[in-house]
Amino acid sequence: MADDSKTTITATFETREAADLAVEHLVQQHGISRVDISIRSATDRNTAGAAPSGGDASHDDGFRRDAPLEGEIEVLADIASSQVAAIRRSLEDAGALRVSSR
């Protein structure tokens, strides 16, 4: 009998760019549907991450001053329990600071 139980995996990233890359890994490499993935601030503050990256970086002095850098970004995905180990490795490869599942 196949194990079809679900688990929510949560990964924390320093930048929105790294979180977006992780989502692409989940979708393209693991076949996770985008409706089963969410991205949110790890705190109660609106944030683009804890460090400038991607569109937050400026060509002049290294970062934009209007990008809210108020904390880390979390990626959450509802996955099959049998995928936890492989997806954990993929999220860590994408730059996750921490990964947990419940």
Rank of each mutant, 00 (worst) to 15 (best):
99 V>K: 01
13 F>D: 03
47 T>H: 03
11 A>C: 01
23 V>Y: 00
101 S>A: 13
88 R>F: 08
54 G>T: 08
81 S>G: 13
102 R>D: 11
35 V>A: 12
53 S>A: 15
38 S>V: 11
54 G>A: 06
85 A>V: 10
46 N>F: 15
48 A>G: 04
30 H>C: 08
95 G>A: 06
29 Q>W: 06
19 A>L: 04
1 M>S: 14
50 A>I: 00
28 Q>K: 15
35 V>M: 08
16 R>N: 10
74 E>H: 04
96 A>N: 06
55 G>N: 14
44 D>E: 08
24 E>N: 11
91 L>Q: 06
24 E>I: 05
5 S>H: 10
56 D>F: 00
71 G>A: 00
42 A>C: 04
93 D>M: 10
19 A>F: 01
53 S>C: 02
37 I>F: 01
89 R>A: 14
55 G>E: 15
19 A>G: 08
83 Q>H: 11
1 M>T: 13
15 T>R: 03
56 D>W: 07
46 N>D: 14
33 S>I: 05
94 A>D: 05
84 V>T: 14
11 A>I: 04
100 S>D: 13
82 S>M: 05
95 G>W: 07
97 L>I: 09
52 P>M: 05
8 T>P: 02
83 Q>C: 02
64 R>D: 09
12 T>G: 07
43 T>W: 05
65 R>L: 10
80 A>Y: 14
102 R>K: 00
37 I>G: 04
93 D>L: 10
12 T>Y: 06
20 D>Y: 09
53 S>W: 06
102 R>P: 01
41 S>P: 06
30 H>T: 04
16 R>P: 00
5 S>I: 09
53 S>V: 01
62 G>I: 05
93 D>C: 02
30 H>F: 15
8 T>M: 08
56 D>Y: 09
35 V>C: 11
32 I>T: 07
79 I>N: 02
22 A>W: 02
69 L>Y: 13
48 A>F: 13
100 S>R: 15
52 P>C: 07
80 A>G: 12
94 A>L: 06
35 V>D: 13
2 A>E: 13
65 R>D: 09
22 A>L: 04
11 A>H: 02
14 E>S: 12
35 V>E: 13
85 A>N: 10
23 V>P: 00
25 H>F: 15
16 R>W: 15
63 F>A: 15
26 L>T: 02
2 A>F: 11
15 T>K: 01
14 E>I: 08
97 L>R: 08
86 A>K: 10
15 T>M: 04
88 R>H: 12
52 P>W: 05
95 G>H: 03
84 V>Y: 07
62 G>L: 03
100 S>V: 12
76 L>N: 11
49 G>E: 07
62 G>P: 05
50 A>G: 12
82 S>C: 03
91 L>I: 06
